[in-house]
Structures are given as structure tokens and as C-alpha cells.
Amino acid sequence: MATVNPIQVQKFLAGMHYPAKKDEIVKHAKSKGADYKVVQTLEQLPEESFQTPADVSKAIGQIE
């Protein structure tokens, strides 16, 4: 499954408070109007706490 560009995802994470867990990130992105593809990508993130937006981008880059 192709993932979205991590930079595209960051616009839906604006205002996110870190550290944040995967479920919080998905919920926040949905509240900002993230499309289906972005939400699906975020739902593939590992179940962990992300300390910064860069951590989220790095994890997205590792999704196959």
C-alpha cells in the first residue's frame, strides 16, 4: 500500500501536542479534515508515543 508524503501529513497535525500516542494523532488529523489516505497511513503507525512531528514523519517513511 502506498503511503502519503510525510510533509503532506504534517498540515493535518498542526497544533498537535506532543508527546502523543497513535490514536491521538489519528483523531487530531481527522478533526483537521485529513482525507482517507492520510488517515489510513496514520493508522499504520506503530503503537507508541511520538515525541515530535519529526518522529511521526520518520515512522511514516518506514511504513511499507
Rank of each mutant, 00 (worst) to 15 (best):
His17Ala: 14
Gln10Asn: 03
Thr52Asn: 08
Ser57Met: 15
Ala2Tyr: 06
Leu42Ala: 04
Ser31Cys: 01
Ile63Gly: 06
Ala2His: 10
Val56Ile: 14
Asp35Gln: 07
Lys37His: 15
Asp55Cys: 03
Asp23Gly: 00
Ile60Lys: 11
Gln40Tyr: 04
Pro46Asn: 07
Lys11Cys: 03
Met16Glu: 06
Ala2Glu: 10
Val38His: 09
Lys30Phe: 07
Ala59Gly: 01
Ala59Tyr: 06
Thr41His: 01
Thr41Arg: 00
Tyr36Asp: 14
Ala14Met: 06
Ser57Ala: 14
Ile60Gln: 11
Gly15Cys: 02
Ile60Phe: 11
Lys21Ile: 07
Pro19Asp: 01
Pro46Glu: 14
Leu42Thr: 06
Gly33Gln: 03
Glu47Trp: 06
Val4Leu: 09
Ala59Phe: 03
Gln40Pro: 10
Lys27Gly: 05
Glu64Met: 02
Ser57Ile: 12
Lys32Pro: 07
Ser49Ile: 06
His17Ile: 15
Pro6Val: 05
Met1Ser: 11
Ala2Leu: 14
Ile63Lys: 12
Ala29Gly: 10
Glu47Met: 04
Lys30Asp: 15
Val4His: 04
Ala29Arg: 12
Ile25Arg: 07
Asp35Pro: 11
Asp35His: 10
Ala2Phe: 12
Gln8Ala: 07
Val56His: 06
Asp55Lys: 03
Pro6Leu: 05
Leu13Thr: 04
Phe50Asp: 13
Ala59Ile: 02
Phe12Leu: 10
Pro53Ser: 11
Asp55Gly: 04
Lys37Met: 15
Ile63Asn: 04
His17Tyr: 13
Gln8Val: 08
Thr41Ala: 02
Pro46Leu: 13
Val39Arg: 08
Lys27Ser: 13
Glu64Ala: 03
Gln10Ile: 06
Asp23Asn: 07
Val4Met: 14
His28Leu: 05
Gln8Trp: 08
Pro46Cys: 06
Lys11Thr: 09
Gln44Cys: 12
Lys32Met: 13
Ala59Gln: 10
Ser31Glu: 13
Gly15Lys: 04
Gln62Thr: 13
Ala14Leu: 05
Phe50Gly: 12
Lys58Met: 12
Asp55Ser: 05
Lys32Leu: 12
Met16Cys: 01
Pro46Gly: 00
Val26Trp: 08
Leu13Lys: 08
Pro53Asp: 14
Gly61Ser: 05
Ala29Cys: 11
Ala54Glu: 08
His28Trp: 08
Gly61His: 01
Gln51Phe: 09
Lys58Trp: 12
Lys58Asp: 14
Ala34Phe: 03
Phe12Ser: 05
Pro19Trp: 00
His17Arg: 15
Val4Cys: 07
Gln62Gly: 04
